[in-house]
């Protein structure tokens, strides 16, 4: 099921993620200096852009996996499960982007929310991938579900570059990019820049750890589903006349040791 190598690398990634996040929090909250304009509020920069970046990254991975599934030469259900796992983690991080942005917006801008292009397209991104996850729950066979969601995932990804470029293409209340701007010249100084970079790396590690875990769960869930399906078919074929709930259940309990509900 799970190879030793996979388990150990997951644990190592988790350990590094924990250390890096702790370092980011300590540097972000206490070591870095306040900003000339924003004062203490600048400390939110060490978490808000990094979680937004992870959301982009997660949806990027979903898209790549979707393409790998759609392409017949690389088609494998594992790509579909990886795409779904990454999208779920992406939704968590998009939610965090919206929450931290709102918390920062209230004191810095004066409002919790405003309908500018950056905020609106980010909210749209959140809803689009919620839709992707909902679509996956519509019952279908594995292949049908994989194709359907791969296409949906690729369509939803169109919003990612729109979110990123929204501050350039339209007038927004949201600031333009500090680091990933057109000239790629970070407009942030010294230890603040270093801490921001650390934040990006730390939350990327958190993402990788979560993805590894989520994928493994998806993989196990899939095998439970497959086992159940096979059993049901087999049982119906074996005793088409005398089928009753009771007989199915006795075997169910004995053979698969009560798998939890998926």
């Amino acid at each position: 099921m799970e190879s030793k190598g996979y388990r150990w690398s997951r644990r190592a990634v988790g350990f590094v993620a924990l250390l890096l996040v702790a370092a980011t929090v300590v540097l972000g909250l206490w070591i870095t200096p306040p900003d000339v304009v924003q004062g203490q509020l600048v400390r939110l920069i060490y978490v808000h852009p990094p979680v937004a970046w992870v959301a982009y990254l997660a949806y990027g991975v979903t898209s790549i996996c979707s393409v790998l599934y759609l392409w017949k030469r690389t088609r494998n259900l594992k790509w579909d499960l990886l795409a779904a796992s990454s999208a779920e983690v992406g939704v968590i991080f998009t939610g965090l982007t919206l929450i931290t942005g709102s918390i920062w917006g209230r004191p810095a801008w004066g409002v919790w929310w405003t309908w500018d292009a950056r905020l609106t397209t980010t909210a749209l991104l959140f809803v689009l991938y919620l839709g992707y996850l909902a679509l996956r729950r519509v019952p279908a066979d594995n292949h049908q579900r994989a194709v359907r969601s791969a296409i949906a995932g690729l369509i939803a990804f169109i919003d990612v570059p729109i979110v990123h470029q929204s501050v350039v293409w339209w007038r927004t209340l949201h600031q333009s990019a500090t680091v990933l701007n057109a000239t790629l010249s970070p407009k942030i100084h010294g230890e603040m820049a270093m801490t921001l970079l650390l934040g990006f790396i730390a939350f990327t590690f958190v993402y990788v750890w979560m993805l590894m875990h989520r994928y493994q769960i998806a993989d196990m869930e899939q095998s439970v589903l497959d086992v159940e399906l096979e059993q049901l078919i087999e049982e119906r074929q074996r005793e088409p006349e005398t089928y009753s709930d009771q007989t199915v259940l006795t075997q169910d309990v004995d053979q698969i040791d009560q798998p939890s509900k998926v």
Binding site: E2, L29, V51, L96, I99, R214, S260
Partner: peptide
Amino acid sequence: AGYLAVLGVLAGYSALLLGRSRKMKKAL
């Protein structure tokens, strides 16, 4: 509040993942 939100949500989701993973392993 911002830092708490990030750490809280990530810790919560991690706990959920660990719990589900343990459950699935028990089953399989």
